[in-house]
Amino acid sequence: MTSIGTGYDLANSIFSPDGRNFQVEYAVKAVENGGTSIGIRCKDGVVLAVEKIVTSKLLKPGANKRIATVDRHLGVVYSGMIPDGRHFIDRARDEARSWRDTFKTPISTADLASRMGGYMQAYTLYQSVRPFGITAIVGGFDSTEEAPVDGEVGSGPACGAGGKVAGKTHGGPFLYMIEPSGLYWGYYGAATGKGRQAAKAELEKLDLGGPGGPTLTLEQAVKEAARIIYVAHDDSKDKEFELEMTWISGADGPTKGCIGRERLSVGEKALDEDEDEEEGKEEKMEE
């Protein structure tokens, strides 16, 4: 690399003459070495999945979960440096909590993405810190129903409020991906980590961004997500891995507006040998 030895890659807060921040670019490299993470926004929910590389036979299968719950309706998965991801999640939980404290209502997926995008960007500015070595995928379902203010006394009047704008829908499934630079966009389908190229190619084949919204159902998306993690896995690099995934639906769906509390986690062998695995998954959706 031409940047080596020039000194411009030694610290954040110093641009190279051609306008790059090398520390951020190195952080992206750290992400590119991590296990694949994907997110799918479908008609009635969001699915998050990650390829969890098994680094030692002494690690208990199914333990050490990688997908985290940030609030009742929000989940995060990430690729890259796991301790950085843990800190990211701690902060996301604080943000979700403080939003509830001030506004007495759950934070929207978009607002959380905005807060966390801002947080990660701050780590590209100062000498004393390094950027996050992760790219995070934030998935959530913002309530489509009318929810009371947290802590409101009583259930309020039985009659509805007058003057609502008819035909307007609110809330729904949302998906965002935040990069080490702090850049974040909303996505129909997102992939990061080692197998992102293959995963993105698979995601693009799904019907996620049609004019009438995605047609893919949550159930189909769960199967697709599992399949994509397998497609994206490179056997020649890492032999052992676990598939970890979770999903979230609206209030009328299987998870009742909350992120799945259980994390479906299966080892490679389990999925290869057991043809009935797909049915097993559907049962789990009734949690």
Binding site: V149, G154, A161, K164
Partner: peptide, 23 residues
Amino acid sequence: GWDERHGGQVYSIPLGGSLHKQP
């Protein structure tokens, strides 16, 4: 207040600082 999502709404906050939604 009036907003797009909820239409017209009334909340009352009496002396102790509780919040009540009312018609």
